[in-house]
Design a protein around this nucleic acid. Structure first.
Lengths: 157, 157
DNA sequence: TATTGTTATACTCTATAACTATA
DNA sequence: TATAGTTATAGAGTATAACAATA
């Protein structure tokens, strides 16, 4: 890594640079299926939530309705997903096609294999500790923490 | 986080989702300076490598010459960076302006403060362990590892 | 009025390719 | 020939805004 001084020691920056490397390997491995990591995530979500609508999918992926449309159009063009009539006449119900079901199996295999290789540099105990830390970092919101106030009597506040 | 089944347990996916959250907070905090995390990284690099040329900057940022141009044009427009004549008549030497120097100080303050808040959910020991793990994950290349061969005599190979 | 899908449009970031000037 | 900067163009991914159909 290039010299970025103190930045190189920042946990946030290290996390960022590491993530870039790991996701590029996942992307490379998934390319044989014709999907990006984001599209693969959509396939997995639809598999686990058969009949969900586009709003639900978009919410899970963290993108809006218009972007969800484009992502879905790609997966429909790949023959992996189909839109069926939904719970009312406004909404679609999303389902994997047989090709999508096979794709999902291959996605899970590829991501698990790649993940295993990427993290094989860590011991089992380290991987457990890392998972715990990442879960907490993900769920933690520093803005909801109370300010630490000095234990002195302020003259005015 | 939405339900992604086994994917939610993958270290790679956890790392990815966590990184998305943390970088959005850094981006939000840096917005007051008018820079993205990537532009801020460029400012820090130029500060540490005064007189570097655009190729060196692009290499450090992991983007090509054309993209480096656009990034630099933005920083020049902000008044943070200037292009001076370089070591020969083809190349530019990049320097921070006084405004860029001040910006760099504020960038370091903001990123350190935000990082401290983001990671405050972990103990000091955990942060040390995390840093060690991220360093190793970053430097590790699973493709350069020898295949594990079974300890049997193969009939043919 | 609110929701769902859709379309058009635009913005950001990146890349490729080609050009200029220098080496 | 190779390198540094530049410019034009294109692609992927995102967003906003507006519209139609439906609730």
């Amino acid at each position: 890594m290039a010299d970025f001084g103190r930045l190189s020691e920042h946990l946030g920056y290290l996390l960022h640079r590491t993530e870039l490397k790991l996701i590029s390997r996942i992307a490379e491995a998934l390319a044989e299926l014709g999907v990006t990591p984001a599209r693969a995530t959509a396939v997995v979500f639809i598999a686990l939530h058969e009949g969900c609508d586009q709003v639900e999918l978009g919410h899970a992926l963290g993108i809006n309705r218009a972007s969800t449309m484009k992502a879905l159009d790609q997966l429909v063009a790949l023959g992996a997903v189909e839109r069926r009539p939904g719970r009312d006449r406004r909404s679609n119900a999303l389902y994997l096609t047989p090709k999508g079901i096979e794709m999902r199996a291959r996605i899970e295999h590829i991501t698990e294999t790649t993940d295993a290789a990427n993290f094989s540099v860590l011991s089992e105990d380290e991987q457990t500790a890392l998972r715990s830390m990442l879960q907490r970092l993900h769920d933690f919101d520093p803005r909801q923490q109370p300010e630490i106030r000095p234990l002195t009597h302020a003259v005015s506040d």
